[in-house]
């Protein structure tokens, strides 16, 4: 894998971290949502990360039958991918609010089990990881620029 492939790895991580941030902000936005198309309150969503070879140019070429000298199990080719978005299995929080239109006969409303503090911490984690990967892209970019200097 060359340096451009290295950038693809960081790129895959930036994409995954952004998807994680999207899911977390969705959780935050729906912290009070009691009605969903599936019925019932909104359920907190989690992202599941897994290693994956990024869709690099050379990968595309080998997939298209071109003979590229690149092992698919290259340990450096390990980017990251959101493998699944799963719903939290925690039961909804029952809140007493008889005036609420979705309250049951006893006056309780099923609210999503979302802790905004937890979500904010997760969001910060995603932002930090995104930044770190952006730094890695810059470092790799610097290396590419420097090796181009050899031509001058």
């Amino acid at each position: 894998m060359n340096l451009f492939g290295v950038m693809e790895v960081s790129g895959s991580a930036m994409l995954a971290e952004r998807q994680r941030a999207e899911v977390v902000t969705s959780n935050l936005a729906n912290a009070e949502t009691t009605r969903t198309p599936q019925g019932g309150p909104y359920q907190r969503q989690h992202v599941v990360f897994g290693t994956a070879a990024p869709g690099t140019f050379s990968h595309e070429l080998s997939a298209a039958g071109m003979n590229m000298p690149m092992a698919m199990n290259d340990p450096r080719g390990q980017g990251v991918k959101v493998q699944a978005v799963v719903a939290d299995s925690a039961p909804p929080v029952r809140k007493y609010d008889p005036a609420h239109p979705d309250a049951d006969a006893e006056g309780f409303v099923n609210m999503p089990a979302i802790n905004p503090v937890e979500e904010m911490a997760d969001l910060m984690g995603a932002a930090r990881s995104y930044e770190l990967n952006a730094t890695a892209v810059q470092a790799t970019r610097g290396m590419i620029t420097q090796s181009l200097d050899l031509l001058r």
Partner: peptide
């Protein structure tokens, strides 16, 4: 030296990319 540096850079970016991947 340059070859090995590029190789190592690849491993480092993989490590950074997988900072939140369980089991990595």
């Amino acid at each position: 030296f340059l070859d090995l540096s590029v190789y190592r850079q690849g491993l480092l970016t993989s490590n950074i990319a997988n900072i939140d991947t369980p089991g990595y």
